[in-house]
């Protein structure tokens, strides 16, 4: 057994496999299928200061090798999370990480401050890249200045590991990444979904209720991999790679491109046990290549 453990800005993980926000609920939804403690970290559903009903149905459409969603950050708010969800998940022996979103820097900071008080939450993932809400979300993540302002505000309120999730819907993801690191991010995760659209040609209407949605699944993997590779070369903080990872081979591509950990999202819908299979597959790869530790392959592309 190779050493799969990684350290993301002070957060120790038993392996580099995490679940992507919005695809794994609070982890509990998958507890029948896998031992949650076998994965390195679980990023729970996006949480906002106030409850959000999200967008109307329909919210999802299947596409070639992927899916579009426009859920729109439906959640019951940070108070509900602290009082009702946290007690249920705090004793799960893995890194339970809360994805935090908002519509203004003050909301982000207040929500993060509430999570900061929760002893068993070692990190937050700041979502400045949701394509499905009108205010906030991706609006902050598409300019270096906007991204800087919200990360700066949260950095002052949040003392533990601060991961910032980046949008691919930008001209230069590297510029955004640098700005976010300057504002105090401890780690970056990328990519969030790519904004897309589908049309019902009989009705001549967009299929999704708000017309556009975020594309995920293997269709986006090459784009995600390219962005992770670019950003990992440009910043000094750890990068967590995600976007269309379906199996261990995909995950290893991201690690080789420079990701210190990876997240699995949409693939959970196809195989609820995929996370543990990917962790096992990474181990098998390391053994086959005579590597003692996963750190030996992070960013280890041959020249």
């Amino acid at each position: 057994m190779a050493d799969l453990s990684v350290n993301i800005a002070g957060m120790q993980m038993k392996n580099p496999v995490m679940t992507a926000s919005g695809t794994f609920g609070y982890g509990l939804e998958y507890a029948d299928f896998i031992n949650l403690e076998d994965i390195g970290g679980i990023i729970v559903k996006g949480t906002t200061l106030k409850p959000r009903e999200g967008n109307p149905y329909p919210r999802m459409v299947e596409t070639a090798s992927g899916m579009l969603n426009c859920v729109g950050l439906q959640n019951k708010g940070v108070d509900y999370f602290c009082e009702n969800i946290y007690p249920q998940i705090k004793d799960i022996q893995t890194n339970m990480i809360v994805n935090v979103s908002g519509s203004c820097p003050e909301d982000y900071a207040e929500c993060a401050a509430r999570i900061n008080e929760l002893e068993r939450i070692p990190a937050i993932e700041l979502n400045i890249s949701c394509p499905n809400v009108k205010q906030g979300g991706m609006a902050f993540g598409v300019t270096p200045e906007g991204a800087y302002s919200v990360v700066k505000a949260v950095r002052e309120a949040y003392k533990k590991t601060l991961i910032v999730k980046l949008s691919p819907n930008v001209t230069s993801v590297v510029d955004i990444a640098r700005s976010v690191v300057d504002a105090g991010a401890d780690a970056l995760s990328l990519i969030n979904t790519l904004m897309g659209m589908a049309i019902d040609i009989e009705k001549r209407r967009p299929i999704l209720s708000i017309a556009t949605g975020g594309l995920s699944g293997p269709a986006v993997k090459p784009v995600a991999l390219r962005m992770v590779w670019q950003v990992a070369k440009a910043v000094q903080v750890p990068v967590i790679g995600l976007g269309g990872i379906m199996n261990a081979d995909d995950a290893i591509e991201f690690l080789l491109a420079g990701a210190s950990a990876i997240q699995i999202g949409t693939a959970n819908f196809i195989d609820p046990t995929v996370t543990v299979k990917v962790a096992q597959g990474i181990n098998d790869y390391l053994e086959r290549h005579g590597c003692k530790s996963v750190s030996e392959i992070i960013g280890a592309l041959e020249d």
């Binding site: 919005g22 695809t23 794994f24 609920g25 939804e29 998958y30 559903k45 999200g54 149905y57 329909p58 919210r59 999802m60 459409v61 899916m67 969603n69 859920v71 439906q74 949409t266 959970n268 819908f269 609820p272």
Partner: peptide, 14 residues
Amino acid sequence: NTMACGVGACLCCV
């Protein structure tokens, strides 16, 4: 309703 995960995780089929 059109759904993805089937287990209440993705909130698509509301």
